[in-house]
């Protein structure tokens, strides 16, 4: 990311400034344009700095991990004797690949079901008038008010009594009804102009078709945000998998990482490597979804 090309700042600068719309060119805009690059770099540094430390550490041998933390120097970030042993150990001796695959499948399944059933009810709450819908909405919202720690034991008992203990289903079923997501999608459905729905109904569309063909495409950025957040949430889940699974074949990434804290020794080099691998799929996912944030895509439907 950092190289010796002295032209790089200027190149980046012109690219960023060039993207600004021409019509905004008052004195305020010009001073902002000058400030913009330092702000962008400052912001980027603030957010990425601890991560660079994490990435560097995942290529270090064990004895090097904390040796150069203090005083801070380039050696704090750059491994002196870089090695792939940590990754090798994770994949070949700790079956980390299985954990990654499990987490991936569970997260995809969770996201798909959550968005499907969440967007259906959100659509009903936002766009269909029926008696008591405000009450239903508040009741749904109320589920996010109770701390999970309070109902955890009870949900655990439910899972055991449904015969789902130590199964894949136990890992995602309780999480696919998500009031946060329902709330988010409802807010976005509400913002869609009424004419769109009315026109579709006049055309003879059933409500389900209105939902599926007209409404869903129009809240795509919200769906993408929801998908990303839900994916991250599922990926980070750790307390719940710990409670409902024992089978090593059902291990998820965060559980596999937490196994690296043993009572004798904290295997920091593997924790950093595991945490690094654990972020890669999420970053790739986001890069893939990022294009849905480009302006214009969304409004083209009814402009």
């Amino acid at each position: 990311m950092i190289n010796n090309d002295s032209n790089l700042p200027t190149l980046m600068y012109s690219r960023i400034v060039g993207r600004r719309s021409d019509r905004l060119t008052g004195p305020r805009q010009r001073s902002w344009a000058v400030l913009r690059l330092p702000v962008v770099i400052g912001v980027a540094f603030f957010f990425v700095f601890p991560y660079l430390w994490l990435v560097g550490s995942s290529f270090r041998p064990r004895e090097e991990i904390f040796r150069y933390v203090n005083p801070i120097s380039w050696r704090t970030f750059v491994p002196l004797a870089p090695t792939l042993d940590n990754f090798r150990h994770l994949f070949f001796e700790r079956n980390f690949g299985r954990a990654l695959a499990n987490s991936l499948v569970i997260a995809l399944v969770t996201v798909a079901i959550t968005l499907f059933i969440g967007s259906m009810i959100a659509f009903a709450l936002a766009r269909i008038k029926f008696p008591g819908r405000e009450v239903v909405f508040v009741l749904i919202l109320a589920t996010i008010l109770i701390p999970f720690e309070t109902i955890m034991v009870s949900v655990f008992l439910t899972i055991q009594r449904l015969g789902l203990f130590d199964t894949y289903a136990a890992l995602f079923l309780p999480w696919v009804t998500d009031a946060f997501i329902i709330f988010l999608l409802r807010q976005h459905f509400r913002d869609i102009p009424d004419e769109l729905q009315d026109a579709a109904i006049v055309d003879g569309c059933s409500l389900f078709r209105v939902y599926w063909n007209v409404m869903l495409p129009n809240i795509r950025p919200a769906l993408v945000s929801a998908a990303f957040v839900k994916f991250v949430f599922s990926w980070d889940a750790f307390l719940w998998p710990l409670i409902v699974t024992r089978d090593p074949d059902l291990t998820v990434v965060q559980l596999a990482i937490s196994r690296l804290f043993t009572d004798q020794n904290v295997l920091w080099e593997l924790i950093f490597a595991g945490a690094f691998i654990g972020t890669v799929p999420l970053i790739i996912l986001f890069l893939f979804l990022q294009r849905y944030y480009v302006e214009g895509v969304v409004t083209s439907g009814f402009n």
Partner: peptide, 8 residues
Amino acid sequence: VPTVTSMV
């Protein structure tokens, strides 16, 4: 990046 980095 921080949102996807493990809390631990």
